[in-house]
Amino acid sequence: MKCSRRDLLTTALKATVAAALPIAAFRFLSPAEVRAAVADPALRWGFLVDTEKCVGCGFCVKACKLENEVPYDTPVSRTWVERYIVTRDGQTHIDSPMAGRDGFTDPKVRDEAVDPAEITKSFFVPKLCNQCDNPACVQVCPVGATYQTKDGVVLVDRDWCIGCGYCIMACPYGVRFFHPVYKVAEKCNFCYHRISKGLKPACVEACPFEARQIGNLKDPEDPVTRIVMTQRVAVLKDEYGTKPQVFYIGLDRNVR
């Protein structure tokens, strides 16, 4: 067999490339993973919060912290619940102790008693990342460590984030924080590891009253989409032009 120097080099190169490809590079993908990877044009995740149904039990916060390994006893959280108490004098008393994790068992708001006879209305508002269509956090990331997936969810690359905090400053909703253990930007991502496998986010799963729902906004038959299309829903702080994709039923003008 004849083997010129050129042949030897070409074969050696091919062999090196072939050896460099581990078997692990080939694996079977679930349909959901394929959809996420090839950017299914028929998928855009959206969220619906029905504030009329929320009782402020805090199960969603508990479930989120455990599912996403955000240290349980820290004040930071990917999702939180706010309590609003409006009194006769027009004042709004707002609090969210430990992000609402343990529910609202104390009638006092930040150690300040509110006379029940004076209360005109009170309600709870769950908050989470709005997975904006025009996310300010993605725009300002200097290294591209935070990015928007094709199905609309904004993710953070923990291995590339430099921890400058610019995204935290840029988010008008205050959903971002530094992860106490990984020391990089952290935020709600609708439990992307779950939804891309066909599961529901931990908070949706944990909510006993269906106050939280997730859906595909591009599917007109989706229950969430149907409500967004047919009922009166609102979004938070749309004046910032971020085009938030978490929709609220029964949003009060006092909500911040």
Binding site: V138, V140, P142, V143, W160, C161, I162, G163
Partner: peptide, 17 residues
């Protein structure tokens, strides 16, 4: 928070920032 990753700004500059 990750000072060792500072050079990332030069490696993958994301110019909308």
């Amino acid at each position: 928070q990750q000072p060792l990753r500072g050079p990332n700004v030069m490696l993958t500059p994301h110019f909308t920032s």
